[in-house]
Design a protein around this nucleic acid. Structure first.
Lengths: 240, 240
DNA sequence: GTGAGTCCTTACGAAACGCGGACGCCCGCG
DNA sequence: CGCGGGCGTCCGCGTTTCGTAAGGACTCAC
């Protein structure tokens, strides 16, 4: 589950959620040909799972889904991190449209719709929502960090990091697999040439508390005894 | 891919309001092929809702609608912000024409009409009401800003912004999702290389007061502690 | 096993920061 | 000339964050 950055400008990631295979197929096909990386899900839970694996840049969401309905999916995604949503609604279903807007869908399209129109709306929403061009996106091991937005996501959930924590994590992500002494980190992240090195220790601990699944047994930020810390890009295994 | 910038220049946004699916279909088809981005609504409330989601550049409005009639729709839209309207009226219904023009329709077409003629009129009205064709219209999260007209709409309602507030908002809309320090903003919006940064703070606060639903807990203009501010283009949810 | 070195954890005071309110200045307008 | 709106500045308060200290836990070498 180690993704890489395959979003060089052109291909944003779009998650298409629809229980009708035909619709999903057509939509996905058009979006794919338009240069997007397309994920698909057939219902709410699947959509949320997909989002955990790969947080999308935009969601095309059928309002009518088996089990969890589209509004709920939208709410839950938004509860994790802000993401643009385009709703698919049945024609003339006024209440649905209003609901969609209340939840904060960025646009909606009524069925039946022209795929071409949908692609246009996707492009429109993305354009006004993500001018992400050259932002050096960082990603590894279920983590992704956007330096320009100063946002960090873990499995599709936004992390509330402080400045130091964010800078520290960003630095680690920029140099995966390498060991850094506390002094190195103090110099690189803090910009200090001297100072109490326990400061680094404490901040690493705080970062672990937010980033690690089990902070007591860290996997991402490992301690190299007598040397310093190393960020492990590939989710390593346990030492017995 | 073949299409270019949708909102500027080429494709203006036209809202077609008609309860007759056949008429709406035909009209929408022609306008679509003419390069416009077409929204559709079947009655008054739907039209107003659609306009809230995406403020149109022009409205094609059937005078005879179930429930709220066309004149009322026109009045309400105009009450929110000036927008060009083309009325569809039954043939020879002189009173209606008069009424339509009184409310301030920019043009009217009598049924039955040739779709080609309607497209021509749309183009004509747009030409004379939108002299500048390529002003970078900005929009996100229920907000839209017209730099040329120096007008800002929130959910279709006009905002009374001061110069600084407008410039600040416009800048944010031009760079959604990115963090800017107070210094950046002071440089970009004020054009100053130095100065009291609290000036920025205060103006952000004033802008929030007009733009945010709950200025105490801002959603659009977020504070990034110790760094600056970030405009969130996606209408986010509450996260308690 | 034992000790010294190293790391983890917690706690706490201080500093930094953002926010709201208020003030005075300037300018256009009546 | 008085008035009001827009603007920039300043101050006090509550909150967040930071750096450091100190005790306990762990690791490695002998």
């Amino acid at each position: 589950m180690e993704q890489q950055a395959e979003e060089p400008a052109a291909g944003a990631r779009v998650l298409v959620v629809d229980d009708d295979p035909t619709v999903a197929e057509v939509v996905a096909g058009y979006l794919d040909r338009a240069g997007y990386v397309v994920d698909r899900a057939e219902d709410g839970p699947a959509a949320l799972a997909r989002a955990t694996a790969h947080w999308p840049d935009l969601v095309v969401l059928d309002l009518m889904l088996p089990g969890m309905d589209g509004l709920e999916v939208c709410r839950r995604m938004r509860g994790r991190a802000p993401v643009p949503v385009i709703m698919l609604t049945a024609r003339g279903d006024e209440d649905d449209r209003i609901l969609g807007l209340e939840v904060g869908a960025d646009d909606y399209v009524t069925k039946p719709f022209s795929p071409r129109e949908l692609v246009l709306r996707v492009e429109s929403v993305l354009r006004r929502t993500r001018p992400r061009s050259d932002t050096g996106q960082l990603a590894a091991a279920g983590l992704s960090v956007d330096p320009a937005a100063r946002r960090a996501l873990k499995n599709g959930y936004e992390l509330a990091l402080t400045i130091r924590e964010f800078d520290l994590l960003a630095f680690f992500l920029r140099h995966p697999g390498r060991v850094f002494s506390r002094q190195d980190l103090m110099k690189e992240v803090w910009g200090w040439d001297f100072g109490d090195l326990s400061t680094v220790t404490v901040h690493v601990r705080r970062l672990r508390g937010k980033v690690e699944d089990d902070p007591a047994r860290p996997r991402l930020i490992q301690t190299v005894w007598g040397v310093g810390y190393r960020f492990e890009a590939v989710a390593g295994e346990e030492r017995p």
